[in-house]
Write a protein that binds this DNA or RNA. Structure first.
Length: 1034
RNA sequence: GGGCGCUUAGCUCAGUUGGUUAGAGCAUCUCGUUUACACCGAGAGGGUCGGGGGUUCGAGUCCCUCAGCGCCCACCA
């Protein structure tokens, strides 16, 4: 026999335990999934974290929830696959590496060249992938680590190529123009995310365009206003509103409405706007109307400086209430003008070279930079008298985040995915519930976004990503194109399955030949290139490969057994900001590639915000590394804490603190201190560094981790469970497995079984429906308040009783066994650790004892046994707990020392007697009560402190002879009486209300009546006691 | 500007289809180291459920409205 005292340590040392356990799981391949026709599969693919940086708490939450589902399903007997991996995150990762390159070596990517830069990024990826996977493992994520994928690995690349090739063949990808944010310094396009608007002092230049051949009564010239006069060189029209009168009318009525509602403070402002509008209608409307008619007649104006006639067009973009009411249209260099150009059908005139100088279209301004061109254009306009007023004005100018230079909107050739049919399919699959989205409200955003059916621009002017598998030659004459086609035909030969090409006609009538190759390293590449075709340098949008993630990771386009078995996946758990970018695209791509859905359900979990309500991010300094939480609180506490907070209505607000590395004091993070390189601990005055530390001196200081005390509850819970388990284990000496006859069990054991049955049901259903917070709460309350505070307490006297000991051990072992299983998905390490110790003292256990599995992780999920649920026992136990509570209350109010037993007499019904009589011993243990009498005729004591229990017909009488503090007791009773009277009055009023009695359901009225009569009884009893005490005290 | 949420104790949040006296954790106060646990136990104080209106016998819960906060999308010559 072993010495049970030494079996289980007094404390759960999570750091050592977790590492050892993770290793054992790993060795036993607990999380490895194989194709197994005997079992049903259950699959989740991880939302692949970006390799940009380390994981933060948002990932912590995301992966905790996935692991809870996966672990539950694994225990339920499914062949569970949780596919892990990371995302190459094109622009973000390239930007990070380029920034570091600049900082540490003062090099740009052009200095390195494409190949070398990509090599550097791969090195970065290796480093962060390792870090990320390490974080996931430390959290206990039971991914299948033998299957780790990366969105840029060979398998994903094959899927990307196959998909692009397929879409190209179906003519669902096409080449089009798109305005990109052009960084003239880095000579690259940057994504919208990397553009920041900087407010600057600028000017608003008014410029006149002469009307060509004005008729009498018509305006001789048109006045426009612009913040960027040099773009006039690329103008291809001047626009005016098609119905200026009505547009002004509408604005006027809106303003009028606003004036009525405006606060006193706003009123003068609104009034001013109205005045301006009125003036505008008087002075400008006439001209605008005429211009509008002229536009309808196809009249032209003369573009100054270049003397190029351009049309007057009518378009709603020209808002008559703004500026001069007319607007110049530069489709190639302004997003809005681009839209107008498309609507009206205008030429798109690019006037820029990639380096930001003007090209030949700019005539004599060719070669000038934009700032210089602006000065020249303004000066020349002034000279020829076409320059009007110059207003000072604050303007928002887009700047590149990376080079800090102004962005130029620049029209470039891009590849697009045609969305109409693809989007429609993805919408239909959600509409008909083939893919279910939880919580439901997120369906709308998904459907609305897809409903716009905007084509998806997929080219990115980057080096890090899947290079577009297109070779092309453009600017060809018709005959050149025909020749090239013949040459291509020869190369293609009979093999039309892996190579396709198209001939496009550009706006300028030139031809372009575009070839798409299906396979990587196709031998024909060089033949194609020798014909003068060049590979498109651009890469695909990161989301293109992410969209294939669920099937590409399983081997598609190969028809692998895994794909056949594990696909479609079961559920996707992700954050709401990528429902459109990612979720929607996975659905449509899966449908396009395989004709099936990628997953059956999508669960959208909340976001984690900091204490100021802001999203966490590294750039703000409020990001929390799960590892820091694990160091301080342990992995189980991290997981439980996150699950506890993950309700589906609210984002998680989590105040964060710095932890002083010297004294462990927590210092609240504020907007101010979160951007400091070093801080001083207010308690111990030690200095510590933060993530912003830059100087050598600061970096040398110990680093203060960013943590949150919100995990304390969870850490305490882990400790509580550990200690309850210790108690059980320390009392298992002499344990022998025995078959348990449930019907013959004493009440307290049947109560435990009943509760276990209920809790099992709640937890199982809760996981099924993604109610993670609810599941956590149910488990917390049951484990703490019922298993520990109640069952274990009751077990103490039973274990001391030789007649009851063996049975108690058997039931207790079963109870702990079940509890460990239920808690395992959310707290894998501590449960696994305890499971190991329990296996040593009670290797066979259960109601019909069986040998326990080596790991709780691979044990069988508990079943809710309907026959164990016993409503009347649960209700009776609630009564018992109320009696206990009542006695404790009076002990506290009378300040009775814990060692003093308190005589009690309990007056209650016959049926309550049946329950309470066998519980005498427990009343002593739990409440320090010596039970003198229980039953219908139990009498009050001479010096009585009565405790009447609402809604159950019980009076607890307490003999206070030894203890009584009359004043304290009287004040307690009077307070109680006041409370009772208040309630009674309320009930009486309610019951005297004719319409309540007649309209409310019978059972509600009955309930009120019976609770009123209980209250009245209690009042009488309390009044009697007050009287008695008063007499006695006099 | 459009959409979706949120507003409940000092703080962070629960509150199922409307139905006894609105709950939890943390924090605060009082008492307590009885051999699982002070990361503990017992108890207490603390809320006119953002404001206003409505529906109903009855509203934290349903409807309207106002205010504040957050997120997503669009837009700002």
């Amino acid at each position: 026999m072993m010495n049970e005292e030494s079996t289980i340590p007094t404390r759960f040392e999570h750091a050592e335990a977790a590492e050892a356990i993770a290793q054992k799981w790993d060795q036993a391949k607990c999380a490895h999934a194989v194709v197994n026709p005997d079992r049903k599969p259950f699959t989740i693919v991880i939302p692949p974290p970006n390799v940009t940086g380390a994981l933060h708490l948002g990932h912590g939450l995301n992966n905790t929830l996935q692991d809870m589902v996966i672990r539950t399903k694994r225990m339920q007997g499914f062949e569970t696959l949780w596919m892990p991996g990371t995302d190459h995150a094109g622009i973000a990762t390239q930007a990070v590496v380029e920034r570091r390159l600049k900082e540490s070596e003062n090099l740009t990517r052009h200095d390195l060249g494409r190949e070398e830069l990509v090599k550097r990024i791969w090195a970065w990826k290796d480093q962060y992938e390792k870090r990320i996977l390490g974080q996931l493992k430390r959290m206990g994520c039971s991914c299948d680590w033998d299957r780790v994928r990366f969105t840029l690995d060979d398998r994903c690349a094959a899927a990307v190529r196959a998909t692009f090739f397929d879409l190209f063949g179906k003519q669902l990808v096409y080449r089009g123009k798109r305005l990109v944010n052009w960084d003239t310094f880095l000579q690259t396009a940057v994504s919208d995310d990397e553009v920041e608007n900087v407010t600057q002092q600028g000017h608003f230049w008014h410029i006149f365009y002469d009307v060509i051949d004005p008729k009498p009564g018509e305006p001789a010239r048109v006045e426009i206003a612009t913040t960027r006069p040099e773009t006039l060189l690329g103008d291809t029209a001047v626009a005016v509103h098609p119905d200026p009168a009505r547009a002004l009318e509408k604005v006027a009525s809106e303003l009028a409405a606003k004036l009525t509602d405006a606060s006193e403070k706003e009123k003068p402002l609104v009034q001013k706007q109205i005045d301006e509008l009125t003036k505008r209608r008087e002075t400008m409307l006439g001209d605008l109307k005429k211009l509008c008619d002229m536009a309808a007649d196809g009249r032209m104006v003369m573009l100054p400086l270049l003397d190029r006639p351009i049309p007057l067009v009518a378009d709603v973009w020209a808002k008559p209430e703004m500026g001069t009411g007319c607007v110049k249209i530069t489709p190639a260099h302004d997003p809005n003008d681009y839209e107008v150009g498309k609507r009206v059908g205008l030429p798109m005139l690019n006037i820029l070279n990639p380096d930001g100088t003007l090209n030949a279209e700019a005539g004599k301004y060719q070669g000038l930079t934009i700032p210089k061109a602006r000065i020249a254009v303004v000066a020349d306009l002034d000279e020829i008298g076409l320059l009007g007023d110059i207003e000072d004005r604050e303007i928002e100018l887009p700047h590149s985040d990376r080079s800090k230079t102004p962005i130029e909107p620049y029209l470039a050739d891009q590849w697009f995915v045609k969305m109409d049919t693809l989007a429609e399919s993805a919408m239909q699959l959600v509409r008909d519930d083939s893919v279910k989205i939880f919580p439901q409200r997120f369906r709308k955003g998904y459907l609305d976004w897809l409903g716009e059916k905007r084509d998806w621009p997929v080219s990115r002017q980057l080096w890090w990503g899947h290079q577009i598998p297109i070779w092309s030659k453009t600017g060809l004459s018709q005959s050149q194109a025909e020749t090239l086609v013949k040459e291509m035909d020869a190369i293609v030969g009979d093999d039309k399955d892996s190579i396709r090409y198209q001939v496009d006609i550009a706006e300028d009538e030139t031809r372009g030949v575009f070839v798409c190759l299906k396979g990587e390293g196709d031998a024909r590449e060089s033949a194609i290139e020798s014909l003068g075709l060049e590979r498109d340098p651009d890469v695909l949008d990161t989301w293109f490969s992410s969209a294939l993630w669920p099937h590409s990771t399983l081997g598609w386009p190969e028809k692998t057994p895994e794909l056949d078995y594990f696909y479609p996946t079961n559920t996707l758990i992700t954050s709401r900001d990528i429902i459109t970018l990612w979720v929607a695209r996975m659905v449509l791509m899966s449908w396009n590639n395989l004709g099936v859905i990628p997953f059956r359900e999508v669960f959208i979990h909340p976001k984690i915000l900091d204490g100021l309500g802001e999203t966490m991010s590294k750039s703000k300094g409020n990001g929390v590394d799960p590892n820091d939480i694990i160091d301080k609180f342990g992995p189980d506490a991290l997981r439980f804490g996150l699950a506890w907070l993950a309700t589906d209505t609210q984002d998680v607000r989590m105040p964060v603190q710095y932890e002083c590395p010297a004294c462990e004091k927590l210092i609240d993070q504020t907007r101010k201190n979160r951007s400091q390189p070093k801080l001083e601990c207010p308690a111990c005055k030690a200095s510590f560094s933060t993530q912003w530390a830059e100087t050598e001196a600061d970096k040398a200081l110990p680093k203060g981790a960013v943590v949150s005390e919100r995990f304390e509850t969870a850490r305490n819970f882990v400790n509580k469970l550990w200690n309850a388990a210790r108690f059980v284990l320390m009392n298992m000496e002499g344990y022998k497995p025995q078959t348990i006859d449930v019907d013959a069990l004493p009440l307290e054991d049947r109560w435990l079984l009943s509760r276990l049955s209920t809790v099992t049901k709640q937890v199982t259903e809760g996981i099924e429906t993604y109610k993670f917070a609810e599941v956590s709460r149910v488990l917390y309350d049951f484990a703490w308040d019922e298993f520990c505070s109640f069952y274990v307490e009751i077990a103490k006297p039973r274990l001391a009783d030789d007649d009851q000991r063996a049975l108690t051990q058997a039931v207790m072992a079963h109870g702990l066994d079940t509890l460990l299983k239920l808690l395992h998905p959310v707290m894998p390490f501590v449960t696994e650790s305890i499971w190991g110790y329990l296996g040593e003292v009670a290797p066979e256990r259960g109601l019909s004892p069986v040998k326990a599995t080596p790991f709780v992780m691979t044990s069988k999920w508990p079943e809710s046994i309907a026959g164990h649920y016993d409503e009347s026992i649960e209700r009776q136990f609630a009564e018992f707990q109320q009696v206990v509570g009542a006695i404790r209350k009076i002990r506290a109010s009378q300040n009775i020392a814990p060692r003093e037993t308190l005589p009690v007499a309990i007056r209650c019904s016959q049926s309550s007697t049946g329950l309470l009589e066998p519980m005498r011993a427990y009343l002593e243990g739990l409440a320090g009560a010596e039970v003198i009498a229980i039953g219908t005729d139990a009498k009050p004591f001479e010096t009585d402190g009565p405790l009447s229990l609402p809604s159950i017909d019980i009076d607890v009488h307490v003999d206070l002879a030894k203890f009584i503090d009359v004043e304290a007791e009287l004040s307690r009773l009077e307070k109680l009486l006041g409370n009772l009277v208040k309630q009674i009055t309320g009930k009486q009023q309610k019951l005297n209300n004719e319409s309540f009695v007649s309209r409310a359901p019978e059972e509600v009225v009955q309930g009120e009546r019976s609770s009123l009569s209980d209250l009245v009884k209690q009042r009488e009893s309390v009044e009697g006691d007050i009287k008695r005490l008063r007499t006695k005290s006099i």
